[in-house]
């Protein structure tokens, strides 16, 4: 595959140059919004004017970042998005862990311990991936009320777990389907139990799909706005809600640099995860969904 273009003719070189040109152009397209965000977030307000989106700051400053983190006001609170950043972490970490563990066990049970109707169960659960979230807002609110979890972080964790396990189950099921069943059968014959087999046989090979599940869930939950705004109170709002509040808070002059810095702060965790682990994400995802 890789050595298709090999001959060093003039035409090939020209083609090579074209190739790089197209790839770089595409890279510019993808980088444009991030570049604008980043550049704007380190500009003093005075340097921001129409048509100068991409001009580099003459006097770069980190003041907008500091303000966005700890001082920018929403309503009467002038505490920036920093506090809410930690709210998000407090919601994301347990939600990701729980949904991944449940997904792994589900995927394992569905593939290695098939029973009558297990495919139907999978089909039923899969539908949860596709349900538009606006639909469940009100009934979910009522349910959270019944459970005594309304407006709490625990409630938000529950919501994210509930609507996350459809995805995590899908990932793990598609991955485990490719793990040779003979091993499991052999272990069963040897008398190994359900959890033992999972622990000793499935889990050790699950690293790629765990990465997928964790990244996917982390991104989804971190970026969630709808559930975050609907099921939180003043002190449990996640960072996306705080960002939205900040950006929509209107005071005479709009501080675009602070808005952009806040947006960067809210985006940073998922961005870092993708940059560091994106490779494993795609590799793991295709291992499941392509061969499924």
């Amino acid at each position: 595959m890789d050595n298709v273009i090999r001959r060093r003719t003039l035409g090939a070189r020209l083609g090579r140059a074209m190739l790089y040109a197209v790839l770089l152009l595409a890279a510019l397209f993808y980088l444009l919004p991030l570049a604008v965000m980043l550049i704007t977030s380190v500009k003093p307000l005075a340097e921001i004017s129409p048509g100068t989106l991409l001009s580099l700051p003459r006097e770069p400053t980190l003041a907008p970042w500091a303000k966005a983190w700890g001082e920018a006001c929403t309503g009467m609170r002038c505490e920036g998005v920093g506090v809410y950043f930690f709210n998000s972490i407090a919601i994301v970490v347990p939600a990701v862990l729980i949904s991944t563990i449940i997904g792994a066990l589900n995927g394992y049970a569905l593939t290695k311990w098939r029973f009558k109707g297990s495919e139907l169960v999978f089909a039923l659960m899969l539908f949860g991936c596709f349900i538009p979230f606006q639909v469940v807002l009100l009934p979910m609110a009522q349910t959270l009320g019944w459970l005594g979890l309304s407006s709490s972080r625990a409630g938000l964790v529950l919501v994210h777990v509930v609507f996350g396990i459809a995805f995590t189950t899908l990932f793990f099921r598609n991955f485990y389907v490719a793990v040779p069943t003979e091993l499991v059968s052999a272990a069963k014959l040897d008398g190994a139990g359900f959890f033992r087999i999972f622990w000793r046989i499935l889990l050790p090979v699950s690293a790629p799909i765990i990465v997928v599940s964790v990244i996917w869930q982390f991104t989804q939950i971190w970026n969630d706005f709808l559930f975050g705004v609907a099921f939180s109170a003043h002190n449990t709002q996640p960072v996306t809600v705080a960002l939205n509040n900040l950006v929509n808070t209107s005071t005479g002059v709009r501080e675009y640099n602070v808005d952009m810095a806040a947006a960067m702060i809210a985006a940073l965790p998922t961005l870092i995860v993708y940059v560091l682990a994106g490779k494993y994400f795609v590799r793991g995802l295709t291992a499941g969904s392509v061969k499924g």
Binding site: G75, G145, S150, F231, A233, N244, V247
Partner: peptide
């Protein structure tokens, strides 16, 4: 405080809170 859209977002929050 819930900013945005002339109180539209705030109304959603309120309904959700009332339902719960």
């Amino acid at each position: 405080a819930v900013a945005g859209g002339g109180g539209e977002t705030a109304m959603t929050v309120l309904k959700s809170r009332a339902m719960s």
